[in-house]
Design a protein around this nucleic acid. Structure first.
Length: 376
RNA sequence: GGGGAGAUUCCAGAGCGGCCAAAUGGGGCAGACUGUAAAUCUGUUGUCUUACGACUUCGGAGGUUCGAAUCCUCCUCUCCCCA
């Protein structure tokens, strides 16, 4: 994997770049739709490629390991072939599940024991096993096993959690170095910065993470409940330490506004479940702010979902029709909403690229943030 | 023609003397959702009021009672069974 920066914004830390993988190039800043179980929920791969123009999608180690399981993925020749997606894939390591499944998980120095949320069976994940699993899945970008530190966390917990993530990083990286890809393309390994909302911890984590000298770096443990301003402070601090010349991936973030602000702070890659999950639940992101399509006010609004929107569904279907579908619990409602939202997210990052290249990023961002912050 | 059951807040349906503005579910309305245990979850749903609270509701009309959705009388209307 290679990264080259093509444009710098003069007024902010924003930049444009190109990540090259064996499955193709990724122009950054980029939004990567989340496809936890080998599917971006509600969107088929053709629409994802042709309409959404997704350049790369995510998969999840924990979920794919439990189902369909390694045998099936290996038999298929890796996740790309299994799901019919020949562009890049990044897999999360299961570090987020250490956070989100805290009720059914035991954290140990060696790794994390999960009771499967599917059948209750015990599974033990270590930095090594998680790396191996991602080799078998065949992700282009493999994430280190970390603990997404919960918020709020006291300083002591945040520190020990962050330090454990660093120890896990060394182990995962060692395993990655000792193993080879299982398929005929290369893989890259990204470490993850933690440290909760404590500047000293974030600094230490960022320095040691940068020292690991991986081809790209991730920032984790944010947008977990802390105020947005604190999140931005952490991003700014960490980005000041992570190497300029490598892609920076802000994990799990976020709202359209979060993304624009973070691009300004020098983040290159994003993923978030928001466009799909919120879409299924009736929240439609538009250039003029989010709308709740379930609201009565759209009942007889036959105007397009979004005039000039990024997806073909935007002018093909009306708000009233989409509202009807979502309210009726029809599958197509979730599909259209998801497609619209994910297309909106990828449009937003493409637009950011264009503005950075034009040198008009900051004023555009200001205007967008203003519009996106109020309900349409 | 004979026998029986019932009418409750938008709907279905509990309640069967005070703890009932009335359970529960649905529907409606609104909100939440940030590396997906989510096609999920939460709030609200008689009127007025910021609130305390006040007021009008349980087919209709009367009555019993300190007090009635709940008991009695009559009326209206539904439904079921047998002919």
């Amino acid at each position: 994997m290679k990264f080259r920066i093509t444009d710098y914004d003069k007024e902010s830390s924003a930049r444009c770049g190109v990540v090259s993988t064996d499955h193709g190039e990724i122009e950054t800043p980029v939004f990567m739709p989340v496809g936890t179980q080998g599917t971006v929920k509600g969107i088929n791969q053709r629409d994802l490629a042709d309409d959404v123009r997704a350049q790369i999608i995510l998969g999840n180690t924990y979920h794919l390991y439990l189902r369909p399981g390694m045998e099936t993925l290996r038999g298929a020749g890796g996740l790309h072939r299994f799901i019919g997606w020949n562009r890049p894939i990044l897999t999360d390591s299961g570090g987020f599940q250490v956070f989100s499944l805290s009720d059914i998980r035991k954290l140990k120095e060696d790794g994390a024991e999960f009771r499967s949320h599917i059948d209750g069976a015990k599974h033990f994940f270590t930095p090594e096993s998680v790396t191996d699993i991602q080799r078998t899945i065949g992700a282009d970008i493999v994430m280190a096993f970390d603990e997404c530190t919960p918020y709020p966390a006291d300083w002591q917990y945040a520190k020990s959690s962050m330090e454990r993530t660093l120890r896990w990083l060394k182990r995962g990286l060692k395993r990655f170095a000792e193993t080879d890809p299982e398929y005929d393309y290369s893989q890259a390994f990204f470490p993850i910065v933690q440290g909760s909302i404590y500047p000293e911890l974030r600094r230490q984590s960022a320095e040691e993470t940068a020292a690991a000298d991986c081809p790209g770096n991730a920032i984790g443990g944010l947008a977990v409940g802390e105020p947005a301003d604190q999140m931005y402070e952490m991003i700014e601090l960490v980005n000041g330490i992570l190497p300029q010349g490598k892609p920076r991936y802000l994990m799990g973030v976020g709202t359209p506004v979060n993304i624009l602000e973070s691009i300004a702070l020098g983040v290159d890659m994003f993923d978030c479940v928001m466009p799909t999950r919120n879409g299924r639940n009736g929240s439609i992101f538009t250039r003029n702010g989010p709308i709740n399509i379930k609201n009565e006010k759209w009942k007889n609004d036959y105007s397009p979902i979004e005039e000039g929107g990024a997806s073909f569904v935007d002018e093909m279907f009306s708000k009233a029709y989409l509202r009807h579908l979502v309210i009726s619990g029809e599958m197509l409602g979730a599909q259209i909403s998801s497609l619209h939202n994910v297309a909106f997210y990828t449009w937003l990052t493409r637009e950011a690229q264009a503005k950075i290249k034009e040198g008009t990023f900051l004023p555009w961002k200001r205007e967008m943030v203003e519009k996106l912050s109020t309900k349409a």
